[in-house]
Simulated assay, not measured.
Amino acid sequence: MNPSATVHFCQNCGPLDFGPLREELTATGLADAVSIVERGCMNGCASPVSMAMQGPGRAIYFFNGVDPAADAEDIVATLHAYLAAPDGWIEDAQPCGRLRFCLVGRVPALSC
C-alpha cells in the first residue's frame, strides 16, 4: 500500500488558490497519494491560512500562516518528509522550508 495523506485547509480563510499546489504535487509524483480538502473553520483565525496534514497511522500536523499557492513547494517538501517518516513523525524539519516556522503543533498517531 502506498503512503497517503490528506491536507486540510480552512475554507473560511479563502478564497484559496490550489492550482500551484496541485501542479507541484503532480510534478513530484504525489498527486495520487495526497488529497486536498477544504474544511470549516479550523480555529487559526489569528494567523490565516490554517492547514493540517494527516494520514492513516500517522501524526497530525497543524500549521498557521500558510499560503497554499506561494508555499506550494514547501508544502510538498513537507509532505515528502511526512510520508517518508515512520508514523509521520518528522525528525528533521529543515527540508520543510518556511513551513517549519508555521507549525503550531503535532499530535502522535493514535495507536488503536
Rank of each mutant, 00 (worst) to 15 (best):
residue 94 Q to V: 10
residue 70 A to K: 14
residue 40 G to P: 02
residue 31 A to P: 06
residue 57 G to F: 10
residue 75 I to H: 12
residue 111 S to V: 04
residue 73 E to F: 03
residue 56 P to F: 12
residue 10 C to E: 04
residue 43 N to S: 14
residue 17 D to N: 15
residue 112 C to K: 01
residue 9 F to N: 02
residue 20 P to V: 04
residue 67 D to A: 07
residue 83 L to T: 05
residue 30 L to Y: 09
residue 45 C to N: 05
residue 5 A to P: 01
residue 3 P to N: 12
residue 90 I to M: 00
residue 25 L to P: 09
residue 20 P to T: 01
residue 67 D to S: 11
residue 82 Y to D: 10
residue 8 H to D: 13
residue 66 V to C: 12
residue 63 F to T: 01
residue 93 A to D: 11
residue 60 I to E: 15
residue 9 F to R: 03
residue 40 G to F: 05
residue 20 P to I: 03
residue 61 Y to W: 15
residue 66 V to W: 13
residue 42 M to Q: 15
residue 14 G to C: 09
residue 89 W to F: 11
residue 106 R to Y: 09
residue 99 L to P: 04
residue 10 C to K: 04
residue 96 C to E: 00
residue 11 Q to Y: 09
residue 87 D to T: 09
residue 22 R to K: 11
residue 62 F to Q: 02
residue 56 P to K: 13
residue 94 Q to F: 09
residue 107 V to L: 13
residue 90 I to P: 07
residue 12 N to A: 14
residue 37 V to A: 15
residue 81 A to P: 08
residue 29 G to H: 03
residue 88 G to W: 01
residue 102 C to V: 00
residue 16 L to A: 08
residue 98 R to Y: 02
residue 97 G to N: 02
residue 33 A to Q: 15
residue 69 A to Y: 05
residue 43 N to A: 13
residue 22 R to P: 00
residue 62 F to M: 06
residue 89 W to N: 10
residue 34 V to S: 08
residue 32 D to F: 03
residue 60 I to Q: 15
residue 33 A to V: 00
